[in-house]
């Protein structure tokens, strides 16, 4: 942490006109090079190459706090990033400068349809993320909830396939469908509970449990009323 602060001060001390890629280079050298190697070439046992991943992957992994990872075998998980927004911008530019790779996407969920998004989400995403995007498990890993994912991050993740998630190309989920998908994910954070009580939105098991407990109490109460009449 001290080292980080030192670097940050160095970075801040640089003249404002200095190229962002240069700031990025020093941040990269201090935080990323140990696993991803010099110039993003990758290190066989600890980190994949970052050549051609582009700004899209760098933006996703850094803004979600997936990177930096404490050790390579850990599953990346959402957490607060140690970097400021400016530092992330600089790192993203630096990683993008390794060569090629897609830019950060600009989704338009307001153009999408929630109903269509639900259909796409159920066929492609709900297997792991659950139908209301609450997250869950897959053998060997946890599946994150999507309640804190921004529209841009969802758009990035669908195309990148972070960690164990499959990648989805434009053949499977077109850009228009992606807008609908994001519209659905955003809706699923605050779904309309037509029944009145969402019970965590995790499906029929707790709903059944509640039904049984409530119906059970009503039945027991009925029995008590009948019993009292008999005893009188």
């Amino acid at each position: 942490m001290k080292a980080l602060a030192a670097i940050a001060s160095v970075v801040l001390a640089l003249p404002a006109g200095a190229a962002g890629a240069e700031n990025g280079a020093s941040l990269y050298a201090a935080n990323c090079v140990k696993c991803h190697g010099v110039g993003g070439r990758g290190i066989a046992s600890s980190g994949p190459s970052l050549r051609h991943v582009g700004a899209r992957a760098a933006d996703f992994y850094l803004r979600t706090g997936y990177m930096p990872l404490r050790e390579p075998h850990q599953q990346p998980w959402r957490k607060g990033s140690p970097f400021s927004d400016d530092q992330i911008d600089a790192l993203v530019r630096y990683v993008a400068s390794f060569g090629g790779g897609p830019a950060v996407p600009k989704p338009h969920p307001e153009r999408g349809s929630v109903a269509r998004g639900l259909r796409i989400f159920t066929s492609h995403c709900a297997g792991c993320h659950q139908v209301v995007a609450e997250g869950g498990y897959v053998t060997g890993a946890r599946v994150p909830a999507l309640d804190r994912s921004t529209a841009t991050q969802v758009a990035e993740a669908v195309r990148i396939g972070p960690y164990l998630m499959p990648r989805f190309g434009t053949d499977e989920i077109s850009s228009r469908d992606l807008d609908s998908l994001i519209a659905y994910v955003e809706w699923a954070r605050h779904p309309d509970d037509r029944g009145g009580w969402g019970i965590g939105h995790i499906g029929p098991v707790p709903e059944g449990l509640v039904a049984w407990l409530l119906a059970g109490s009503v039945l027991v109460a009925t029995c008590l009323v009948i019993g009292r009449r008999g005893a009188a």
Partner: peptide, 26 residues
């Protein structure tokens, strides 16, 4: 079989597998 897990970096992550979401047969 609605789940496909694929490692981004196979050296440190679980191998590719087809997973059933009902009872996690892999």
């Amino acid at each position: 079989i609605a789940l496909y897990r694929k490692p981004t970096f196979p050296q440190v992550e679980p191998r590719p597998a087809l997973v059933c979401p009902c009872h996690y047969s892999t």
